[in-house]
Amino acid sequence: MSFKKIRSKKCAYLFIQKLGFKAKLVGELAGNYSTVVLMFGFAVAAMAPALVISRMLSPRKRSNPVKFLPMECGQVPTGEGRTHFMMQYYAYILMFVVFDVVAIFLYAWGSTILYLPKDATLPIIGFLAIVFGAMAFALHQSGRRDIW
């Protein structure tokens, strides 16, 4: 391995250390998140019995088939239950898929800005300009009711 490669690797390592990632191994880093999963599991373990106890306490009468029909304010329901997918707002979902990634990408820049040289902000401003343009075009297109 050449000197340059080693140096760049060391730089990357120091950079990662500066970010505050104290863990050296991926497993160690992921281990921090085990308590989040533990909390999730605790909530499942604590709340599922509530449903079971409710099922044991409450009456279960299957006398009337109308009782188990989907709620439609007293009418007997007709047609499909999964209906009415509003197409005119579908464009916003597509926009979300793109711009959510952009927003998270900005965090990679925002959280390290104190360690970056000031010149590094200029490309980001250019990037933001492109994002604004794209977003304005997408909003204009999704506002057009005649194509959706």
Binding site: T35, V36, M39, F40, G41, A43, V44, M47, L51
Partner: peptide
């Protein structure tokens, strides 16, 4: 419902 409570609890954990 259980998943909803559990996800809210995972949020609380942070």
């Amino acid at each position: 419902p259980v998943l909803f409570v559990a996800t809210a609890a995972a949020f609380v954990a942070l």
